[in-house]
Amino acid sequence: MSLGHEAQNELTRIAVKAGQILHQHGAESRLVEQTTQRIGMALGAQSIELSVSSDAIVITSLFKGNCVTTTRRCYDRGINMYMVCEVQRICVMLEKQLLDADQVKERLARLVPFKYNRWLVVLMIGFSCASFSHFFGGDTPVYITTFFASAGAMILRQELAHRHHNPFVNFALAAFLATSIASIGVINQFGEDPKIAMAASVLLLVPGFPLINAVSDMLKGHISTGIARWVFATLLTISVSIGIVGSMAITGVWGWIA
């Protein structure tokens, strides 16, 4: 098989685009590495060397002693599993030779992140946190308080994210709002133990995906990206806690510890 210099450039660009999409939408480093390598090899490269760091990828394609290297910054665009699924599907179709290089390029360029209706998400997140309040032993009034507190926080979180606010500011404000709404329940004594609502209503702000990705990156040998994700998740947790403490200091309702 022969591959001209221009074709090798093109191959490298296609592979790095796939890797960039995966990285930006929250895939773990192993998946980014493997999928990019598979796409590059399927397009005809002899080998693909890839370096994944927390906010960029560097890729080198090798063909008969000729190296092409390129770098892409990967700005975080929010977790979107739809995009990860689509890139994986393109990779599998390419390996089965159902697509050629041009079609892969066109399909990657055409991908648009799929998003659920935001009010549906608010409703489901409200019920989710309300279910957590059930796990903590809350009764029906607590369930209702938690629903409204977390749904309100989710609306705020979506609004701030939509306006590209810093995630730490966003999470702290959302935690502040959730705790404030839940503390109304404590002041008016809704239900048996209304403090449960304060604990359950902020659980929509737990950075679960970054934490799981962090540990699985570290387990699979990508220590530095794992540490970066871990630190990011920890900072988010700290800013949520600051929001909670700020709200409790203002309302005087001490729902945590004590």
């Binding site: 929250g26 977790i79 979107n80 599993m81 739809y82 995009m83 699924c85 992140p113 799929f114 998003k115 659920y116 549906l120 998400v121 489901m124 997140i125 019920f127 989710s128 946190c129 309300a130 279910s131 957590f132 059930h134 796990f135 679960g208 995906f209």
Partner: peptide, 19 residues
């Protein structure tokens, strides 16, 4: 009570509908 948060957070992560 466990399936509700699983689906709720799956929607935050934009998991495709069929999944």
């Amino acid at each position: 009570f466990a399936w509700i948060p699983a689906v709720g957070f799956a929607m935050v992560f934009n998991v495709p509908k069929k999944m």
